[in-house]
């Protein structure tokens, strides 16, 4: 698949550059300060106003509404899943629990980095004859300590996966691509946004991986007329994957429904029509497990009609999530078109 002609040739490189920078900033849910600072520095020159709200959402405004324009809210969450230390044992091993939906199967052997820089790896103890996958209680972090006193970590410290980004063919592999890809695409859209009849509220939200409190409170504070979340979705194109009609490389997935919401039908149609008119490859997403910021935005105050543009992603919530660069570019293209054209209603 090729990138549609209208794309600036630098777009992919720009997004990749952003991603490389963003994925290495640790930002577990509730502790998004560092990634927020980075985003704020990048987008401040490109927006009309910018602020940080009570819970830590980064909220930027841009544009003046024309007669046929709308106020559109776009949300991409900044946070990522992580672990938090619950106990330091006598031998200096760190016991932990999850922040967000951590899948145990991805943990053993993985590396983590704490907010203050301490590094560790996930060890696991398996009983002889054990056939079940080990529980979190059987896992621990080895941070190079040999007793409680010399352990650099204390109870309550947070850590995230620690792994550099890797390019494999036309694909990118890394930690926290959920949702730094959404963040990178939205930043690139903001940086390159041309004339538009609409006014925008861009929300880089906190705590999506918990229960989307950031989007919920940001939407409460907004008077937007419609909203789009930019996030990732899982795919059904790996061996024996759960059935799902989303594949890597198939273009942005237009969310029809997920576990938490049914996307506004007018917005779904708007996204599909725009993609077809522009020849942007796209697919439809019906996600049975998981949801996005849009779930909360949709029901804020008297309601904000919402949809979601999803970037297909494999190995969700693992230290090696994978996306296709073409999908990022096409998502960028569709989003740009949506924001500069006529609104859904």
């Amino acid at each position: 698949m090729t990138i549609v002609d209208s794309l600036n040739g630098d777009t992919v490189e720009n997004i990749k550059g952003l991603l490389r920078e963003l994925v290495q900033i640790p930002a577990p849910a509730g502790h998004e300060g560092r990634v927020r600072q980075a985003i704020q520095e990048i987008i401040t020159p490109h927006v009309d106003s910018i602020k940080v709200d009570a819970l830590g959402n980064l909220i930027a405004r841009k544009g003046r509404k024309a007669a046929d324009g709308r106020h559109i809210l776009l949300s991409a969450h900044m946070d990522e899943i992580g672990v938090i230390a619950t106990h330091i044992d006598a031998n200096g091993f760190v016991r932990f629990t999850s922040v967000g939906a951590l899948f145990l199967r991805y943990l053993p052997g993985g590396h983590v980095r704490f907010l203050d820089g301490a590094r560790g790896l996930v060890g696991v103890n398996i009983e002889p004859g054990q056939t079940k996958f080990p529980s979190m209680e059987q896992m621990f972090l080895d941070v190079g300590a040999s007793n409680r006193q010399d352990c650099p970590v204390q109870v309550g410290d947070l850590a995230v996966f620690d792994r550099p980004m890797l390019e494999i063919g036309n694909r990118v592999v890394g930690k926290s691509l959920d949702n730094r890809t959404g963040v990178a695409v939205l930043i690139e859209v903001i940086r390159s946004l041309g004339e538009s009849p609409h006014t925008f509220t861009f929300v880089f939200s906190v705590q999506e991986e918990l229960s989307r409190q950031g989007a919920m409170t940001a939407a409460f504070a907004s008077d937007a007329e419609m909203a789009i979340a930019v996030d990732v979705t899982t795919s059904g194109d790996t061996p024996q994957a759960a059935r799902m009609a989303v594949s890597l490389g198939g273009g942005p997935a237009i969310k029809v429904r997920d576990q938490g919401m049914i996307a506004d039908a007018r917005i779904v149609r708007w996204m599909a029509d725009s993609a077809e008119q522009a020849g942007i490859p796209h697919q439809y997403e019906v996600l049975e497990l998981g949801t996005t910021d849009a779930q909360m935005i949709q029901v804020a105050r008297e309601g904000i009609p919402s949809g979601c543009l999803s970037i297909p992603l494999r190995y969700l919530h693992s230290p090696a999530e994978m996306v296709d660069l073409n999908d990022l570019a096409q998502t960028y293209a569709l989003l740009t078109r949506l924001l500069t054209g006529k609104a859904a209603f």
């Binding site: 709200d53 009570a54 819970l55 959402n57 938090i84 230390a85 619950t86 106990h87 629990t97 922040v99 204390q154 109870v155 309550g156 229960s211 409190q213 950031g214 919920m216 409170t217 940001a218 409460f220 504070a221």
Partner: peptide
């Protein structure tokens, strides 16, 4: 510092009220 993990208090409902507390 309470061991992080399960459980919850009224803070769970309070912090998400209005535009965030």
């Amino acid at each position: 510092l309470r061991q992080p993990g399960g459980g919850g208090t009224d803070a769970g409902a309070i912090h998400r009220q209005r535009d965030g507390i």
